[in-house]
């Protein structure tokens, strides 16, 4: 594969990743790269290996093949897909946010203020709503001053209006921290607009690129249905499409008839 050296803005770069669980191949030949200041979004149907890929990149799972290069001293903030915080462990929001770190209370308050829930600092973490909990976890990620934030379905359990707010918050956090963001999402309509790069995954990389390119890719249309193209911002229902800069570009012939 290409072996260009890891440049200063590149945070993590993997190529040729593959993994099987038993006889079932879950991922094969996956390339991915996240740089500082960009939002890379993984989309794909259930079981397409999105979370598995994230876990490999984070070192939670070991890939069978492929290489991963991380920037030296890369600090990662991770927001996992499932967080079964039961009432078993008594834990205030402040403790949850400061977990595995040495943050002072003022820093915790500040991080919670950034995600808009500083008033909940002494609440029992198990009593939070879905959106509040995700905000608490985002605050926790911020507190770690990450170079790279990995968000696996960050808006799950959040109502529709809350989703858009949460995505906006993620964008703001990225701008403020200047970090890179790798996000897994189902919300095509919101993701396509907010991402710098979209990777459409279905056990392999079906297509990847800027949102408008991916949205018109036949593989993408095949996976999500022709109407999914409408989710992408700036796309028209015509024989042409605008790229990010607004230039008209042609749609390929195989493109569905949505």
């Amino acid at each position: 594969m290409d072996t260009e050296p890891i440049t200063t803005s590149v945070l993590i770069k993997a190529s040729g990743l593959g993994i099987s669980f038993g006889a079932r191949s879950v991922l094969s030949n996956v390339d991915i790269c996240v740089s500082r200041g960009e939002i890379v979004t993984l989309i794909g149907p259930n079981g397409s290996g999105k979370s598995t890929l994230v876990k490999i990149l984070l070192g939670i799972l070991q890939a069978d093949c492929g290489t991963i290069e991380r920037r030296k001293g890369l600090r990662v903030g991770y927001l996992p897909q499932n967080f079964p915080l039961s009432g078993r462990i008594p834990l205030s929001v402040a403790r949850l946010v400061a977990l595995n770190g040495t943050a002072r209370r003022e820093a915790v308050v500040e991080a919670l203020a950034e995600t808009g829930i500083s008033h909940l600092i002494d609440t029992d973490a198990g009593a939070l709503s879905g959106g509040e909990f995700q905000r608490a976890m985002l605050a926790r990620a911020i507190l770690r001053k990450p170079d790279l934030m990995v968000l696996d379905e960050p808006v799950q359990g959040v109502d529709f209006a809350g989703e858009a707010r949460l995505y906006r918050l993620i964008q703001e956090i990225k701008n403020r921290l200047g970090c890179g963001i790798l996000m897994v999402s189902h919300d095509l309509h919101l993701v396509m607009g907010g991402s710098d790069k979209v990777i459409c995954l279905n056990r392999h990389v079906c297509c990847a690129g800027v949102p408008v390119e991916v949205a018109k890719h036949p593989e993408y249309v095949r996976l999500f249905g022709p109407e999914a193209r409408n989710f992408a911002v700036y796309t028209h229902h015509h024989d042409h499409i605008h790229d990010d800069a607004g230039h008209i570009i042609r749609v390929s012939e195989e493109d569905g008839d949505g």
């Binding site: 876990k55 984070l58 070192g59 939670i60 990662v76 991770y78 996992p80 967080f83 915080l85 462990i89 834990l91 949850l96 977990l99 595995n100 770690r144 990995v150």
Partner: peptide
Amino acid sequence: ATIHEELAMAE
């Protein structure tokens, strides 16, 4: 590690 195994591993 008790609160979230995978999050702990990632960190």
